[in-house]
Amino acid sequence: NGDSPPTVSMAELDHLVQIISKSHLETCQYLREELQQMSWQNFLQDEVERYQSKPREVMWQLCAVKITEAIQYVVEFAKRIDGFMDLCQNDQIVLLKAGSLEVVFVRMCRVFDSQNNTVYFDGKFAGPDVFKALGCDDLITSVFDFAKSMCSLHLTEDELALFSAFVLLSADRSWLQEKLQVEKLQQKIQLALQHVLQKNQREDGVLNKLRCKVSALRSLCSRHTEKLSAFRAIYPDIVRTHFPPLYKELFG
């Protein structure tokens, strides 16, 4: 009935960890070494002001493009997760439509500098003030706070990979046709995540902290949708003609 966790051998869990970690590293957009080479360069004040003085719609379009690029990597990640492509096409679409932006937010902690409260964006590290022209200060603050709290967990790449897969394979999304199959896959991923956390000798509370992040992610994504609706109400033509088609498909 889907309530009892599936029986999985240690070897199977190790294999799942290996596959998902590999998928994550192959599709994570930026390798840690590449980020280190960027030497955590921050935008200068005049560059910040240039972003701030962009028209609202231009900044929205720029962010939509960056989000869409990141989402394309998440789609590739999903495709390489064991069992994802075995789900029916409807459910693959449902899971990505609901979860791809959530995974982008999870992945953000890899490109986030907690000490300076900056994130890698458009070639350098940007603080929340860079995004002022969007007119969504509250959402931006929440996104930065989320990245900071994810960073404070100091997840390894393996742990981050499995948590991303866990988020993506959420069995409680609306409109799933084969909910039970998604549920089984998510339970296996959760067991693999627990397995890795134990192996890495993480304290017991980490899994609970990660579970709390799931609801924070949902809140961030629904607020993004609200902000987009408000923006679209004022600039319908900009969204229609200038926003990336994939972004419109996912959030329209």
Binding site: R80, Q92, I93, L96, W175, P245, E249, L250
Partner: peptide, 17 residues
């Protein structure tokens, strides 16, 4: 759903590189 998400569907169909 597939009809409304043609690009996503296409990305899913493309073989992984």
């Amino acid at each position: 759903l597939k009809e409304k998400h043609k690009i996503l569907h296409q990305l899913l169909q493309n073989s992984t590189s």
